[in-house]
Design a protein around this nucleic acid. Structure first.
Lengths: 210, 210
DNA sequence: CATTTGCAGTAACAAAAGTTACAGTTTTTT
DNA sequence: AAAAAACTGTAACTTTTGTTACTGCAAATG
């Protein structure tokens, strides 16, 4: 585990903290599609991503979903952090976007390290900053962009996070993430294909403009 | 200043910290409508609200605006905090919703107190939590609600923050906050009036359901 | 191999939101 | 007092998004 830890966090944390993480953290693994954390779950530990990617979703009372953002190696979820420290339930759902490896850190250590290590404090604040920024970007897309732009942006983000131009998704899955309908997605995808920005295949979308 | 400080923050901060705040903080005053902090401003201090209310806005490249949330007594802006600590430019605009009194705390002290006072650490984390929660609510309204619901919710929030059922606003001002057009606002306001939820007058809207 | 299921394409229509234009007020300015 | 500016209401129309329904095709299943 130490080797993997160093690759993802060696540049931010000092040797001693890495050792502590290795010692107290619990290594976990989630298969693609697995729900790592759900809405209303009580959270008592936070994840440090080693490999893979996680998508964070919001849901309303009717069960409509919306993708908030992706997490990748070196990230943690500030919303989870916030839940941990405030002893509240999770406001979001975390789903493995790909097969994912991560380390879970218990709340007690989070607080302890905040007092003990400056690098950890910085990491925590940095995480809050990143997540706030990503939430702002999400708000931007919702408030200022039409569905066609949102869709293209989504495809580009997803391609980046999966490190592949070819996305193995159905139109329905895309529709869920964007909280719209399958028909709307099919329609706009066709338009994007006409414009030469993507290529449509059965169960897969190839994104050209990255 | 101490008296005012105690009223707003006496229950959260210990005596010693209150004294430090009184000593290093700079008391400021902003008239209704005044821009307290703008997009791309470099931020080196964070505000603690004593009296009044501030609205936080987002803007895109075309100049379209969107209200994110309100701050009131006892609040601080986690986005500002985040900017301070990360030495980055402001991502949002802060405008005095009413005449407002607040204390500005320089970055150096923010960091110093984070190490020194547990109550301050809690306050900082609590602020992050509140702001993340409010951003999530903003996202909910954008992603899951139609304009009529968003409008009613906006009016209720605004009435609450201004501690008055009667809002002195024009339809155009409402339209700016919700990033829609004046005509749409007028149309939906009329519908809300028909449903008995509000009363329309020139330059003012009376909100019944709170 | 026949059947069922899941996926994509598209038409036709409905609802929500945005746009343009103009009229009738009230308020402010000159 | 007359003119200009600001505010609201509304009609008519467009664009965007959502919904329903049906088709054809591919993949999975028995």
């Amino acid at each position: 585990m130490l080797q993997e830890l160093k690759e993802a966090y060696g540049f931010i944390f000092e040797e001693e903290l890495l050792k502590e993480i290795e010692h107290t953290g619990v290594l976990k693994f989630a298969r693609e599609g697995e729900i790592i954390m759900d809405i209303n779950d009580y959270i008592s530990s936070m994840p440090l991503l080693l490999e893979g990617a996680i998508k964070i979703l919001r849901e309303d009372k009717e069960g409509n979903e919306l993708l908030l953002y992706f997490l990748e190696r070196g990230d943690t979820c500030a919303l989870t952090l916030s839940c941990c420290l405030g002893q509240t339930k999770s406001e979001v759902r975390a789903v493995a976007e790909r097969d994912t490896r991560f380390i879970m850190i218990p709340v007690s250590k989070i607080e302890e390290w905040t007092a003990k290590y400056k690098s950890w404090r910085n990491f925590v604040f940095e995480s809050y900053h990143s997540r706030l920024t990503e939430m702002l970007e999400t708000i931007d897309t919702l408030a200022f962009m039409n569905m066609d732009k949102r869709l293209l942006r989504y495809l580009q983000d997803k391609a980046k996070i999966n490190q592949s131009e070819e996305l193995q998704v159905t139109h329905q899955q895309v529709a869920y993430d964007l909280n719209t309908s399958r028909v709307v997605v099919s329609r706009l995808l066709k338009k994007l294909e006409m414009e030469g920005k993507i290529l449509l295949q059965r169960n897969s979308i190839v994104v050209h403009e990255l």
